[in-house]
Every structure is written in C-alpha cells, then in structure tokens.
Design a protein around this nucleic acid. Structure first.
Length: 446
DNA sequence: TGAAATGTTGGGGCG
DNA sequence: ACGCCCCAACATTTC
C-alpha cells in the first residue's frame, strides 16, 4: 500500500475545518448555506469580510448600512460567544482575505449563499477559482429568494418582463417545500470552539456613528393584515418596515412568505416584486446603465444642478416631496408611497435623469438593493419593464391631500411648512407637467 | 401604484 | 307642467 505523504510540516497540527462566509445573510436561524455547512461534519469557522472594494467607494464615512452590518454582526457574535464560539471578522479585499484564510487554516470546503448582483457574481467567481486552485470545495446555496432567475420563466423558457404573469406563475409554482426552513440555529455547537473575537469598532473600520436607530425586526401581524388599507399613508405605521432586514438577510424570506400567505396577499405581492426585479437585473444587467425599454434612451434630461440640490435637500417647495427627502436624509429610509412621489418629481417635474436620483437613493437608503432601486426608478421614469406609462404624472399636491390630509407626515419632517420660511415651488406644477409630456412625447420613439 | 380634460346625467331653481 | 340653465357628481377619454 503506497504511503501518501501529503502533509506539510506547518499544516501538520492544523485541524481540518469548513468555513461559512456570511454576506447578505446575517442571521444564524433558517440560513440555507449555514445549515449545510454545519451539517458537514467538520468544525465550522464562520467569517465575515468587510469588503474594502465596497467600503472604499462609499462617499460618506457616516454610513448607516455599515453600522447596521456592524450591529448585526455583534448580535451574531453575542450569541456565539455564549457558547465559546466566535465569528471571525476580516477587513480587506475578498481575494486578499481569502488568500490569508487559505494560508492560516486547513480548509476542506467553503460554504455560502448565492448572491446575485453583478459585482457579487464576479467576486464569487474569482473566489471560487482561487479556492479550486487550492483544492478547496465551494458550495453555494439559494437562500435569499424563494425562486431564482430561471425558476419562474415563460412557457418558451424566456424571462418575464411583465410583472402580473410573473407573479401568477410564481404563486402557482409555490409549494410547501419551497418554504421549508433550515434549522441552522439548532446546530450552533457545530461551530469550531474558539475564543470569542472582539468585533472591531466602527472607528477602526474608518466609519463614524450616525445616531442610527436600528429598525425593529418584529413582524406585527396586524400591520401586515391591514397592509392594503394603511400602506399608502406615510403619517401612520402602515408598512412592515422589514426592507432592511431583507436586504441584509437578518430575517428569512421563507419565514416572511409563510407569514404573507397567512396574513395578506397584497403584502406577498410586494415580496414577489422583490424577486421580479432581482430576476430582471440578473437577466438584463444592462439596466444598471440604460433604460430597460430602448425607446426611452433619447430623453433630453435637463442639466439643473440647482433643481437637483433642492430636490436632494428637501427644499422643492412641495411639502410631500420635501418631507420624503428629509426623511431619507435623516433616517436612511422613506415611506414607499413617498419614494414614488419624490422619484416622479425628479424625473417628471424637474426632468432630471433618473440615474442621478437612483444614485442618490443608493447612497442614502439603509435598505438599498440594486435590483429594487433600479427597477423602481425606471418604473418612476416610465422607462422600466412594466413601468407606468410616462404620462402618468403625480400631482404632489393631490398626493399630499389624498395620503397626508392631516399633515401628520409633512409636519413631522417639514415643521416650517406653514410659515414664511418655507420656499415657494421650484417649478409650477401644470407648467412642469406639460413640459414633461412634451419632452417625453417628442423623445420617445414610437 | 395618476390626473386633467371632456362628456354625460340628473336634480333643482326659475321663468 | 314644462323647458332651460346651472352645476355637481360621475364616467370616459386623453395625456
């Protein structure tokens, strides 16, 4: 029998481990990839990488998302520490960090969950190649969505570009097994025993605290049940407020869909919109830079730095628009109806390129998700798949009257609204409306 | 997930 | 009682 001498001296004492890589799935319970990893039979080292490729691009050192991630990691760490386990927090480019991990540990397999954005796909391809070169297995699982890009397609195999038939097929395809949870939390003792590592504070990551309020992770059944009747009123608590938890995976989509089936069909539909836009981005990554519908590509957007600034700072002179922008600036969130109104205002009333608004939301939104943000901005601009026709223009005064009649929302964010300090409208509504109609009409190729 | 413009209807005031 | 006008309310079309 031949002797295989495969152990190098410096790895001789090292235990073989598997690694789980946390990314957009910052939770211990019902986590598909984590579950499979913990069942692998080897001790598991959980890692998170503060990716400098992403962090270095953030303009603001006061970024609520970094703080949200930081807080979520602390929650995980607290739980692990109570069992003498530890999350490993690393900082650097994924490639350099993985090179180091490969050196420091004797890794058999690396587990993670699929991540679908273009950057994540290329990052994961690179890491997969690196691991493979080093003889390490790579396992990735569906976890972030119920159905992936190719699971809900038309009869001819092509992707949908209209929401309603997509939703119908999605609901038709859904079965109990798609919602089965992964009891990863019950396997916590399969993590490698190690001394709990201290999580570096935000300052060491180059960020500052923002006076950030962690959005609650509680599902209030009554809010979901009353969703249709209350969701359009920004002055009351009518939406679930769970978007950020979906964004970072601090809550499981399978659990939320189960709740939706129990409580409210319309709310389920919102969860399906999320997968619809993810599917669109996956199949048509060009939408990041271009309108989904080509015939909208020649709209002569106005160059209007002052208008943009007034929109950005919540000083347009339209109370509902200003309230929304100030809510965004102050909290990192904005009520969904108001997102539609503010996006419509920038694209239609100011005729400013939707990409500028998209970029601003991307910078500010705590729940920022590339697919949803892009899809919804294109919807507002009229150039997206299944978008509102361009001539559906919101009147910000009517919207305010309909959805914030008592000024609860407006007064909260624009306290000076009824005083002389409040600016006059940046542009008169009916003038702006007609201008938008004219410009779109002559620029859209029919 | 719109709003404005235009058309229609019907009740009531009034000659 | 009747026709005419006004106008609110609702419906339809248009952007």
């Amino acid at each position: 029998m031949p002797t295989i001498n495969y152990q190098k001296k410096n790895t001789e004492q090292k235990e073989i481990v598997n690694v789980f890589w946390f990314r957009r799935d910052l939770r211990l319970n019902d986590n598909a990839g984590l579950y499979h990893c913990l069942r692998s039979g080897l001790p598991v080292i959980p890692v998170f990488i503060f990716d400098t490729e992403i962090l270095d691009q953030l303009n603001d050192r006061n970024d609520r998302r970094v703080e949200f991630i930081h807080r979520s990691l602390m929650d995980i760490q607290l739980k692990l520490a109570s069992l003498d386990r530890s999350l490993m927090i690393l900082h650097g480019s994924p490639k350099s960090v993985w090179r180091k991990l490969i050196k420091d540990f004797r890794i058999k397999s690396v587990y993670m969950n699929h991540d679908y954005e273009p950057y994540a796909i290329s990052r994961d391809n690179e890491i997969r190649t690196l691991l493979r070169k080093n003889g390490i297995e790579f396992h990735s699982y569906k976890d972030q969505v119920i159905f992936e890009e190719n699971e809900i397609v038309r009869e001819n195999g092509h992707p949908y570009s209209v929401y309603t038939p997509y939703r119908k097929k999605w609901e038709y395809r859904l079965s109990i097994k798609d919602l089965t949870g992964y009891p990863s939390e019950q396997l916590i003792d399969h993590f490698h025993v190690m001394k709990p590592e201290k999580i570096p504070d935000l300052g060491r990551l180059g960020f500052v605290k923002s006076g950030f309020i962690y959005p609650e992770k509680i599902i209030h059944d009554e809010i979901i049940t009353d969703y249709e009747s209350k969701r359009d009123f920004p002055g009351i608590r009518g939406t679930s407020g769970l978007s950020v938890h979906l964004r970072f995976g601090t809550i499981s989509i399978r659990y939320l869909v189960k709740k939706a089936l129990e409580l409210n069909e319309t709310w389920l539909s919102e969860l399906i919109w999320r997968e619809f836009f993810m599917m669109i981005l996956w199949h048509f990554p060009k939408v990041i830079n271009e309108p989904f519908r080509k015939k909208y590509k020649n709209i002569p957007w106005r160059d209007d730095p002052e208008g943009f600034e007034r929109w950005r700072d919540g000083k347009t002179g339209y109370p509902i628009v200003d309230a929304g922008m100030r809510e965004l600036n102050q909290t990192g969130l904005m009520h969904n109806r108001v997102r539609m109104i503010t996006a419509g205002f920038l694209t239609k009333h100011l005729l400013i390129d939707w990409r500028k608004g998209e970029r601003y939301f991307a910078e500010k939104l705590l729940d920022f998700d590339l697919a949803a943000n892009n899809g919804n901005w294109q919807w507002a601009a009229g150039c997206g798949c299944d978008a509102a026709p361009y001539f559906r223009i919101f009147n910000p005064l009517i919207q305010a009257k309909k959805y914030d009649a008592d000024l609860m929302y407006i007064k909260k964010w624009v306290p000076e609204v009824e005083t002389s300090d409040y600016p006059s409208p940046v542009v008169e509504h009916s003038y702006a409306r007609n201008r938008a109609l004219d410009v779109y009409k002559s620029a859209v190729i029919e």
